[in-house]
Write a protein that binds this DNA or RNA. Structure first.
Lengths: 229, 229
DNA sequence: CCAAAAGTGTTTCACTTACACCCATGA
DNA sequence: TCATGGGTGTAAGTGAAACACTTTTGG
């Protein structure tokens, strides 16, 4: 099955912009490169797509291999293919973004064999390749999409307080929200299950914990409902 | 610059979902394949990415070569990479969607050397590869995005009536709109320039022609305005 | 004068916004 | 008892939705 472009094909990679949320800050998981080019620089986790695996599988595999993460929310972001984005040769990368519940994963990722670490999105180191562009695109997408899809819950632990949720939105949207209005609106959607548990170890009145009702969301969505904050 | 995956790289293509709007119908431009696989089937215009050109350039080039179209609104849609989407070998395709002002282009495309034709989106022939999926994704994207970006104007001639505009939205959104509310809302945005011309050759009162004010839109957008229908 | 579509205002209702205080808890 | 955040209601304003008739023009 010889082909015209066989001899000059672009290489194909996937890269993942992995978001986490921790104590009011939006974080990003980066890997320190141990080979040229850009040796020593921080970069997005990612790598070459195997010839028999799907793009999404490649992204999941690379995440697992490089950061130990699995079971994350993953969505294709954009494909970056400027001819000069890799100094060695033509490399086209399909970027994904992932949302992880940082609480359960943070330690693992930070102690992985390869040097991985979480960075505050507003304080990133210099990056390899065009990864700043990719991250910028991911931030824009997240900011846009979080308002009309219930993505936020993917960044919080399964049980969370309304204040945590509000802070998450405030961080992503980079805008303050009115506490009473926020609670009214989100509760009126009827997508949160009130648990009978409360926050632990706080030096003030403990807040009630809620849980996102995935099933109810899907059900409502079928009936034409759409989430909007 | 030898590389591990050199010998088994996926091929990389671009495909374009080209939308047009004509007399109340949303149309799609397809090419009839003259080679295997899927010889004789209709398919999206597209082809292999050259190793030194950007993805967008490749999409523009293929559009020009296969359909004669240029100066269209073009935006990356999604990258399709299921390993079995091409029966010959692994082919990853970066899909774009394009919006064209059909009025000025329709004849050219239909008479091109290769067999190209416009089809009503609700009455498509059998398609090659996974092109139905790509089209479905494009329709969803168009439907979602047309409400918060002024894309609709890319499908209309430079001068259009408010009724034409409303029909366009009704077609894309697949929902009827109230005439008075529609006009109130769109005019209140202050993005349309009233021309002193009117429709020609109609057997009833002729409607006023408007023009989309691109400059004003960019200006307002900077100030935090965002289009929403 | 008839057919066909252009064009236009008002009321109702729902939702968004703005805003401030009391409550529960742990230290 | 104090500091800290948790939790709540209401009024005003804005924008969306519903709705029907008159005007213009060509045939």
């Amino acid at each position: 099955m010889a082909h015209t472009y066989q001899y000059s094909r672009a290489a194909l990679t996937v890269d993942c912009v992995v978001f986490g949320f921790d104590e009011g800050d939006l974080k990003l998981l980066l890997i320190q490169r141990d080979i040229e080019p850009f040796e020593g620089r921080w970069a997005l986790p990612g790598g070459f797509v195997h010839v028999e695996e799907s793009l999404e599988d490649a992204a999941l595999r690379e995440l697992q291999e490089e950061t130990g993460l699995s079971k994350v929310y993953l969505e294709q972001l954009y494909t970056f293919g400027q001819p000069d984005r890799d100094p060695r040769e033509r490399v086209v990368t399909v970027a994904y973004y992932a949302l992880v519940k940082l609480s359960s994963h943070s330690v693992k990722a930070a102690t992985d064999a390869r040097n991985a670490a979480w960075f505050d999105v507003s304080d990133l180191p210099r990056l390899a390749f065009d990864h700043e562009n990719i991250i910028e695109a991911a931030l824009l997408r997240l900011k846009g999409k979080v308002r009309y899809e219930p993505l936020g819950f993917e960044l919080l632990p399964p049980k969370f307080t309304l204040t945590q949720l509000q802070h998450l939105y405030e961080t992503i949207l980079e805008a303050p929200l009115d506490k009473r209005n926020f609670r009214k609106k989100i509760l009126a959607m009827d997508l949160l299950l009130e648990t009978d548990e409360i926050e632990q170890d706080v030096a003030h009145r403990a807040a009630r914990l809620y849980r996102f009702d995935e099933g109810k969301y899907k059900q409502l969505k079928k009936k034409g409902f759409h989430f909007e904050l």
